[in-house]
Write a protein that binds this DNA or RNA. Structure first.
Lengths: 344, 344
DNA sequence: CAGGGAGTGGGTAACGTTTTACAAATCTTG
DNA sequence: CAAGATTTGTAAAACGTTACCCACTCCCTG
């Protein structure tokens, strides 16, 4: 019923014969290269159309280009990443490049596997979203393939970066809460010990932003941090710890929306109302936060812009590998919702 | 500072020279092919290790295999797909295959672009998750590359399929609701007109399951369907329509969790309590449903199993392209939560 | 001891595209 | 109209890997 063997692919040679030109000519037309007359272009285009020819990426790869962009994203479950991804894919929409994703990178080993696989597949450019790999690995990869890193502070000579201004984002939250009259504002952070990551990882920068903003509002004595993880469970445990401390905070700044979800669970369990007893703010403005039942005040990173900028930087670097690297920092905005209100 | 040009890749030739064997020998070791002595394997392995050699996928692709599996997923935002994806990637974890994702496929044109791109890149196998493309396109692709289709009912001679038993899933919901005492149970479906899709698409099968289950419970006269889309907005509009109809239902079966979120918004706006005034059930058991603030009764498709089965079928088909096709249907389970209760 | 099978290894020709070098044809310009 | 410059097209050589075929050595069997 179905063909026993898949039909042989139409190649550039078939096109050349059909159009009665050389294979070189076809190749030139495909790449919009120099040295083609309008007449020839027309002939070749017609032949390509009639034969349904499509260039074979593997063969192209052998000569240097695969027209493929690899995007590594750490956790496909985080509803913040799709925004970035859309920004990237939209930017490559009208180019010859195809974006492919490397999935499920939780941890250094998995990231290494995926990035190496992308290099092995001859990808023309890489976007690494919020990688946790050590800097040395990122720089090695960037030395092999044009690379843009998203969500990692600290400049590099090897790769361009695009980040959210997490320092400013934390300040937005504290400004908002102090504006409402809060003074006892606690923070739940994602635990970090490695000295380089304390400087580069967004979670560490957010915690730093919290401290700086509290200082700026003369609330240094109210600084109250609990250190868990950016997960629902981390938020749950973190909130429990906060409630066990002597002076109960009137507001909690959770480092991510995921964390905030866990906090909500813990507060409900403790019989506390939000925002009646305690105000709560998150970070990332995920789909969760926008749900009517949740309506969580959160910080919106301009995800689409982040992705679009990364795509632009990558295209620039592909055309000129030796251009000096760029660092772009994008400003977040606060989305006030129903989980924040004046203190009781 | 950084190397001006990326260093030339280590090739199989370098390895062969270093190990003092032929390139053929190296290739054989790499592929665990027949005709290698333990001594030679050791020599080659050592050389590979010392030189840090990695096979170049593009070159392999020219000879037929790229060791790459492509997964097309329609909407990265749907929190149900990660489960499937994990099932797939876990299954390929310990093989030489690398899984890559094709992103952002909303619509027939985008799906065609991504699938073609995957074929062009010489992928060894494809998994298409809930594709909306016409059947003819799916069969064409499957004729070129081993393919497994997830979430599309109806058998094909060209590709294997793995689906949730949506008929049974709908029955689970109706059984649960009638068991609680409900009789006026309405359903919000995703609108579908194309005759083939009415048979093949999961949303259509769910609606059908609703009808059949209502019949089975002698509630045929209570069948009450509103036709919108599987989105939050679709749920919102659908619920509004239902509330405007003469007899208000005591329970709503939303075709997806997304839809249910919109229903919750509309009910809250109408001043109705859940489950006090109206019970609500969704489908997919997404992360949303599990949130403490939402706690939505939903149907869980065994996502991980779906993915794992798809991976297994794909590997089987790669080893034997002419094996007859298989259709696997997996049973869903109901997860009762706090949005369903006896009618008022 | 001839014949032959099993176990090892290597030589070589693809695979489909782009790049480099160059020949032929056409156009400028003094 | 000659001499150079530009345009238009081609032939052939890579790129890194694998498949196919052949050669050689043992060792077994009749």
């Amino acid at each position: 019923m179905e063909p026993v063997t898949p039909p042989r692919r139409v190649t550039i040679v078939d096109v050349a014969q059909h159009a009665k030109v050389s294979t070189t000519a076809v190749s030139k037309v495909l790449r919009n290269a120099y040295g083609t007359s309008p007449t020839m272009r027309a002939k070749v285009r017609k032949a390509i159309e009639e034969l349904g020819y499509r260039p074979y990426a593997a063969a192209r790869g052998m000569r240097g280009q695969t027209y493929t962009i690899g995007v590594m994203l750490p956790d496909i479950r985080n509803p913040f990443f799709p925004e970035i991804l859309d920004g990237i894919t939209d930017s490559f929409q009208d180019t010859d490049y195809q974006v492919l994703l490397g999935p499920g990178c939780n941890g250094v080993a998995a990231e290494a596997r995926v990035t190496e696989a992308m290099v092995d597949r001859g990808m023309d450019g890489l976007v690494l979203i919020a990688p946790v790999s050590p800097r040395s690995h990122l720089e090695r990869i960037a030395g092999l393939v044009p690379t843009v890193v998203i969500g990692r502070h600290g400049p590099s000579a090897a790769y361009d970066t695009v980040t959210d201004d997490d320092l400013a984002g934390a300040a937005l939250v504290i400004d908002h809460l102090t504006g409402l009259g809060h003074r006892r504002i606690a923070h739940i952070e994602h635990h970090e010990t490695d000295p380089i990551r304390l400087i580069e990882m967004p979670n560490a920068v957010r915690a730093d932003g919290y401290r700086q903003a509290m200082h700026a509002h003369n609330l240094a004595d109210q600084i109250n941090i609990v250190s868990t993880t950016y997960t629902q469970e981390g938020g749950y445990l973190g909130a429990q710890q906060l409630l066990a401390r002597p002076q109960r905070p009137t507001a909690i700044f959770a480092g991510s929306d995921f964390t905030a979800m866990g906090v909500l669970d813990a507060l409900a369990e403790a019989g506390l109302s939000v925002p009646g007893d305690i105000s709560l703010a998150g970070y990332d403005n995920t789909t969760f936060a926008a749900l009517g039942q949740v309506s969580l005040t959160s910080v919106d990173q301009a995800g689409h812009h982040i992705g679009a900028n990364a795509a632009r930087l990558l295209q620039d670097r592909i055309t000129d590998r030796h251009r000096p690297t760029t660092q772009i920092k994008l400003s977040p905005t606060l989305i006030p919702r129903r989980t924040t209100a004046p203190p009781p």
